[in-house]
Design a protein around this nucleic acid. Sequence first.
DNA 1: CGAGAGTCGTGAACCGATTCAGTGATACGG
DNA 2: CCGTATCACTGAATCGGTTCACGACTCTCG
Lengths: 331, 331
Amino acid sequence: MPRKRATIREVAQATGLSPAAVSYALRGLQVSEETKERVRAAAAELGYEADPIARALASGRTGMIGLLCGSLEDLWQQSLAVGISRGLREKDRYALILDAVGDPARERALAQQLRDQRVDGMIVQPIDPAAAFWPELCESLPVVAIGDSLAGTAAEVVFDNRRGVTLALEHLRDLGHRNIAVLTSTRSSTPDRPADVYVTAEADRLDLDIEVATAPHGLAGATSAARDILSAKQPSAVFCFADSIAYGVYAAAQELELSIPGDVSVMGYDSYPMSSLLTPGLTTVDWDLDGIVRAAVRLVAAAADGSGARRRRVVQAPTLRERGSVARVPG
Amino acid sequence: MPRKRATIREVAQATGLSPAAVSYALRGLQVSEETKERVRAAAAELGYEADPIARALASGRTGMIGLLCGSLEDLWQQSLAVGISRGLREKDRYALILDAVGDPARERALAQQLRDQRVDGMIVQPIDPAAAFWPELCESLPVVAIGDSLAGTAAEVVFDNRRGVTLALEHLRDLGHRNIAVLTSTRSSTPDRPADVYVTAEADRLDLDIEVATAPHGLAGATSAARDILSAKQPSAVFCFADSIAYGVYAAAQELELSIPGDVSVMGYDSYPMSSLLTPGLTTVDWDLDGIVRAAVRLVAAAADGSGARRRRVVQAPTLRERGSVARVPG
DNA sequence: CGAGAGTCGTGAACCGATTCAGTGATACGG
DNA sequence: CCGTATCACTGAATCGGTTCACGACTCTCG
């Protein structure tokens, strides 16, 4: 028999107090120390635990934070989701994870649904940061955006991509690379990552000779783009604007019997969990996942608790993760 | 201004009906077609949507399913979680994903918390399927176990590992391999996967010459174990009891300048999402992730809705996913 | 024609907390 | 010694639905 849970009234009965007093006592408000203690004892005795549903209805807060991901196909986003979920759990909150599977319309619908579910706040990796519904949504509950700035008034955790590009290119230059191929993904048209702009500007500054190409989506696409580049231009290094593209370069190199990093160096971007598993490990520009998680959790929790400024912006700095796919140019 | 949501009473007012009638109408119960239509119209007009919290309090069901994962470090479990989350969403339910990070004590605590959160049911990948709290938990709400049978009365989705091993070994034999090294993980002591037993039995039946070794946890461990085996015994194939172990074999092969599958064939187990990205792609024993997701979702939804037998068992059959790391023995 | 069955709807209790206004009682300042 | 804070606590309303018991009304059938 699923033994019924104790209610607050039973605890009140047991202590001879009113339900209101019990409610206050358990949350440490306006009651004498002695009474608090008595209530705690009785609650423990009866195994009483406030029903989150009833509490939510009465107080208006659910303790849940919505996590709206752009696409959980992406292993990086998966890691992030897992991390955030844990981080929230440590703050005694639950994450409600939703996946827009890359569809802006779905993103909109899910955002609505999260609001309807009465989450106390949400963390978003927006697909379409410029969408018209964001401002209104941000108005009605605390929102933290990761990666891109939202149209509305949201707190945000953004990446210093400018610095990331600099890091990668300087590293290549320092090792003697002058002739570098750059592979961007077709999808990198997000406003905050105008890859081409940063890259060409930085290349100019560093006096590098670069060639930018776009890789179609997916491994096959990346591989064929890489094949073209490697056989045609023979760059001494390839800078891939996503680790997933670098995987294609690995495949192409294998086909062409080029050794990494002997014949060609490969630099990735956005450390994917599997990049360390390749041979050789992929040297890449890494973001402090843990730091992002902490920042996002902190921002959303603060906003949901009503404390803290609702408008905040945290910029994440990249680090270079050297692993072995980039070597000094011979000679 | 966060415009207040419409309540059921307002809809009642607008239609001249009682709140009760509206409630029934919107759920398609005991009311005339005509009234239903009228209510629907009014609801749409006012943008009314029943508040899930209030509904949960009154009806006792939250629409949420708890998903308790053993460890979300594991990419396979991540994929599963993502899939289940989506599957539930399609059934108009939300997944509350929790991660026990490999700790049985935490698993216990989180299971409790999920129950307290009033989920309508839960899906579990148990770390400790024999733990004492399961029976009671299964008694108090519908539970679906994935991978291992629970101590309590739960529905379950289990894997036919016997068949998986057979598939792998027969494939190797068919391609002429006789001399096979088997690498199991230290952690494979789960009751439902007594790897060694199946493997040796099958090897006997197929008249294969196998050598079983254990790989320490992590890539480094797998790599060194693989190095030992490859250099010492020179097997024509290595059967790894987890794709992650196979990654170690790839690394070791590279070091030893052995080509896969030219010099040695590699067979994995449990298709990991990244295994198709390696070069060559890892041939492995694959479980129909989508099928598992569907089965789990179906079972838990049925149980939570009260329909369907609460006790059910679905056995998943493996398939061989040929990709390129296994070739015919030369000669 | 009247009893029994079936349809539509209503009123009110209820789910289990939170929260606000208010009530005694004690303490304090003048 | 009175007026006023302050403290500890209570009663009742409230959140926004669901559900039970029952009433009114229309059919149907013997």
